[in-house]
Every structure is written in structure tokens, then in C-alpha cells.
């Protein structure tokens, strides 16, 4: 019995970390149709910001929840101004440029900090179910995923910024006619997406290995989840993250972690073949 509770916790963990990982990419892709292939490196920067500030004596919670998103948000802002803004509407070029950017960031971090980085211990300790151990941090990640979902929903649905952002997403020309500056909206959305990604990196820093190349492990998964989810930021990402997260954990439980990954990638390919517009293109049309 206890093993199933643990499995359920694993599934919850898989879903919530995947959701956190993808949300930033989904915001950027959903709003601006830019595929940010440097997404994995934004996660890596968030993790580095957390680990370095925590090792320098900053409280771990502040390092995770404040330093990481603020730092990556600023980096995102700079990158948008210097690079991304020239590439709107050029999907392939933006993919190439952000891929180059990802290599560049990996190179810079390797040059500065070398190939390894001391991690931080997982806060909050653990609890046991039957003869199995689990950690409270898993539950905290799920809580954070729920909080992030609520925040993004609230901002997009009930604030003026959210209204303007959604209007720009639907019809930039019309929004511009009504006095909105689309360039400004894109800029802040990109920075916001980067900040959310940095937060995800910070939250995952205690439970993952910190290396300059760590982003590579995430970017394909995030990319696939966002595309599988379709255009709707929240419902799409949430449904795709739930599907892929649970498939991954359950398959990994019954086979090996490696085949778990293989099975989840295969699921993604079949899903894209069956629903070329993504899950939300079919089931949650017009939702957020």
C-alpha cells in the first residue's frame, strides 16, 4: 500500500516540476510565438544564482524565491533588448539565435565557474510512509506549482497588464491602434517569462545536479510539453505537464528511468501526430 502512496507522490512531483519548468517557456511561446531554446540555460542561471547566493550566506528561501527570479528576469530583459526584439516574426531565426545564446551562456558560466558547482542541501527534511522515505520538499514543489498557477491566472485574468498582454497576443496591430505599445508588452512578457523560469531553476537547484550543461536535460522536455500543450498558456501547459509527468513517473516505476524517458518522448511524438494543435488547441479552445 505504502508503495502506491510513494508512487502517487512521485507522480505529483513529476507533474509539478515539469509544470514549473515549462511555465516560463509557455508564457514566452504563447504570447510571442518565439521558441526560446535558451530556456534550459535560464533554468541553469536560476539554479546558479540560488546556489551561489546561498553558499555566500543568503538565506536559502530568499535565494530561491527572490534572488533567482530577479536575476534571471534582468538577464531576460537584457537579452530581449539586445537580441530577441530583432527576431519577432522570424520563427526559425529566433530558434537559431536562442540556440546560439544557449551555447554562449553555457560557455560563459563554464569559463567563470568551471565544470562543477557545489550544490545546496535540500531544505525541509523528510517523512516516512511505511518503510519508504519521502521529503517535504516534494510537497513544497507541488504547492509552489499551484501558487504559480494561481498567480499567472490572476495576473492574466484580473489585472490591466494581463488584459493588455492578452489583447496584444490576439491582435498586435489592433492593440497598437488602441494605444498599447506592443514592443513594451513583448519586452515585459519576455522578462516575466525569464523570471518564472529562473524561479523554477531556483526551486529545482536543491534537488538536481548543478552543472553548466544542466539545461540541456530540461530544454527538450520543456519544449515538447509546451508544444504538446498548445497555445493556451495555463490549461495547455498544465494538461501536457500532467500527461507527460505521470507517464514519465509511472513508466519509470515499471521499467527503468531511462526507458521512462524513452516512453514519455514516444508519447509526445504520438500526441503531436494526433493533435497537431496541441491539447489546448483541441479541448480548451480560447481558454487561458
Amino acid at each position: 500500500m505504502a508503495i502506491y502512496v510513494i508512487l502517487a507522490l512521485d507522480v505529483l512531483n513529476g507533474i509539478s516540476s515539469l509544470f514549473l519548468l515549462c511555465l516560463g517557456l509557455a508564457i514566452i511561446f504563447g504570447m510571442m510565438k518565439i521558441i526560446n531554446l535558451a530556456h534550459g540555460e535560464f533554468i541553469m542561471l536560476g539554479a546558479y544564482a540560488t546556489v551561489i547566493s546561498a553558499n555566500a550566506g543568503v538565506n536559502i528561501w530568499i535565494a530561491m524565491l527572490v534572488v533567482a527570479p530577479v536575476f534571471v528576469g534582468i538577464v531576460g530583459l537584457v537579452i530581449e533588448r539586445c537580441l530577441i526584439r530583432f527576431l519577432y516574426g522570424r520563427l526559425v531565426d529566433s530558434m537559431l539565435a536562442t540556440w546560439g545564446l544557449s551555447l554562449l551562456i553555457i560557455g560563459i558560466i563554464t569559463t567563470i565557474y568551471g565544470n562543477t558547482q557545489q550544490g545546496v542541501p535540500t531544505p525541509l527534511g523528510g517523512f516516512s510512509i511505511g518503510s519508504y522515505q519521502s521529503s517535504y520538499y516534494t510537497l513544497f514543489l507541488a504547492l509552489m506549482a499551484a501558487v504559480m498557477m494561481a498567480i499567472v491566472y490572476g495576473v492574466m485574468r484580473f489585472t490591466r497588464f494581463g488584459l493588455v498582454a492578452r489583447a496584444t497576443m490576439q491582435n498586435p496591430a489592433m492593440a497598437a491602434t488602441l494605444g498599447v505599445n506592443p514592443a513594451r508588452v513583448y519586452m515585459s512578457t519576455f522578462a516575466l517569462g525569464a523570471a518564472v523560469t529562473g524561479l523554477a531553476g531556483g526551486l529545482l537547484a536543491p534537488v538536481s545536479g548543478i552543472t553548466p550543461g544542466m539545461g540541456g536535460a530540461y530544454v527538450a522536455k520543456a519544449f515538447m510539453t509546451v508544444v504538446g500543450g498548445g497555445a493556451a498558456i495555463l490549461s495547455g501547459t498544465m494538461s501536457a505537464a500532467s500527461l507527460f509527468g505521470s507517464v514519465n513517473q509511472v513508466a519509470a516505476y515499471f521499467t527503468t528511468p531511462v526507458y521512462g524517458e524513452v516512453i514519455v518522448f514516444t508519447t509526445a511524438i504520438v500526441l503531436i501526430r494526433l493533435l497537431p494543435q496541441g491539447i489546448s488547441g483541441r479541448f480548451f479552445k480560447g481558454n487561458l
Binding site: F86, L96, A97, G100, L103, G107, T110, T111
Partner: peptide, 20 residues
């Protein structure tokens, strides 16, 4: 002195932006 990723990344970004 230089890291291969750094140079490759810079080359790709520069070409996409300036010499597409």
C-alpha cells in the same frame, strides 16, 4: 583561454543577427 561553446554560440548569434 576560450571555451568552445562560448565561441560557437557567439558565432551563431552574430551570424543570425548580422549576416543571416
Amino acid at each position: 583561454l576560450l571555451n568552445a561553446n562560448l565561441v560557437l554560440g557567439a558565432v551563431l548569434v552574430i551570424f543570425v543577427l548580422l549576416l543571416p
